[in-house]
Design a protein around this nucleic acid. Structure first.
Lengths: 228, 228
DNA sequence: CACTAACTGTGCACTTTTGCACATTTGACT
DNA sequence: AGTCAAATGTGCAAAAGTGCACAGTTAGTG
């Protein structure tokens, strides 16, 4: 069992994915490599949107501030994800703010350059389409989650997602990137006090561990998401 | 003013969009044209997902039923929208149910056929990418709406969307497709009684009219979405 | 080591939402 | 017209969520 799984991922590791290589190889003008430190701002809500970004290393979150001043985390993105793709279909202003939550490296590609590249490189285009489809599915899941579940379940789901996020294998116990209750609240769509309350509940039930670093017992938390 | 606008849309009308034509022209095997009557089921949640659909005429809604038996409307789709695209990136089962809410005509294209076509026809691929990007933006908006707004505002927004849906020009007063309070509730993410309550409130405030058919006064309802 | 500043635990009044129940209206059909 | 089923209007107790306040804890930082 253990062996089978190891073999599988070894095989998967062998398959060279040409995604970023393509970008690197064939685009010359209108492409920049940018480095951001933790909390570095890639772009801000309301700015002109004239380029698309691709995460190469690190993690980036997309946040939105409502008219009323509430803040929400729309998504957390890791390597290969695109950011700010809206500009490719006429979105002239950024609808959200992109912030690195770890030291990160991104490609920045001019809108027109990207459109040309998509036109010229079928392989790139195909990869990009696939990533859009995946994002779509994620967004639909998030929407269902909001529509169906109360905040306790939603928090459990967010914790699970964060635990898997960037984890090579699905560990039964996965350490999470450090995230404040405040941020969790913005991801879940609730208040900090509520998050605090449920985090303690989860801890006392043995579903998570934390003193500083948070550790998630996936199988147990999964039950919370699925049942009752 | 009136003249300018008329000219504009006349010009727009002239530009032939090659989207569906491409599909028609170059795909031969693995493509079917299907007609659905009102309430006809295109596919059901849980079925095997081996094809993608494109709305040619009519309207289709995507609904999801939760483990707890709650039902939600994920989206309403009109001409040119794709349905069930998830199958292109490894989604083997339908995550939702697609139902025609009007007599509708759809293309059905086998998964493999579509993948081949995307590979072979850059122009098709480009159009498809653009539609995915737009859907993405819509989904993000919906998610923000859920995260930020209470059900009253969300209902107002749904009404506005429905009023624009399929309307050639943005009329100040737009008639909506006939939708029950029950369905509105599933779109907004709340209960029927709540919808009923707010609909009456909106009516008594003069924001909408209805006795059977629903008419929306867009400028007024827009205020509800934006303020207070 | 002391001193901020940020983060966390907790309680509470108030609002929104849910889930029902039941009366009333509408529309389609015979 | 009469009948039935579906859709709508309304009320209400119980549940969930919000917004704050304040105390306790932790992590820097000089």
């Amino acid at each position: 069992m253990q062996t089978t799984r190891a073999k599988k991922s070894a095989v998967r590791g062998l398959r060279v994915d040409p995604y970023l290589q393509n970008l690197l190889k064939n685009i010359e003008d209108g492409k920049t490599v940018l480095k951001f430190s933790k909390n570095g701002t890639v772009f801000s809500q309301g700015e002109a949107a004239d380029s698309i970004y691709f995460v190469q290393t690190g993690k980036v979150k997309i946040t939105v501030v409502s008219a009323a001043g509430k803040e929400a985390v729309l998504s957390m993105l890791g390597p290969r994800s695109s950011i700010g793709e809206g500009c490719l279909v006429g979105q002239t202003l950024r609808i959200g703010t992109a912030t690195a939550i770890q030291p990160s490296t991104l490609f920045r590609i001019e809108r027109r350059t990207m459109l040309r590249a998509l036109h010229a490189q079928p392989e790139l285009s195909e990869k990009f389409t696939a990533s859009l489809l995946s994002r779509n599915i994620d967004l639909e899941e998030d929407l269902c989650d909001q529509l169906f579940n109360h905040s306790e379940k939603r928090l459990a789901r967010v914790l699970l997602k964060l635990a898997c996020f960037g984890q090579a294998e699905n560990m039964p116990e996965a350490r999470m990137p450090r995230v404040s209750h405040e941020t969790l609240a913005e991801m879940v769509g609730t208040t900090r006090s509520r998050v605090s309350h449920f985090m303690n509940k989860f801890r006392s039930l043995g579903l998570i561990d934390y003193n500083g670093e948070i550790t998630v017992r996936s199988e147990l938390l999964t039950d919370v998401v699925l049942h009752d």
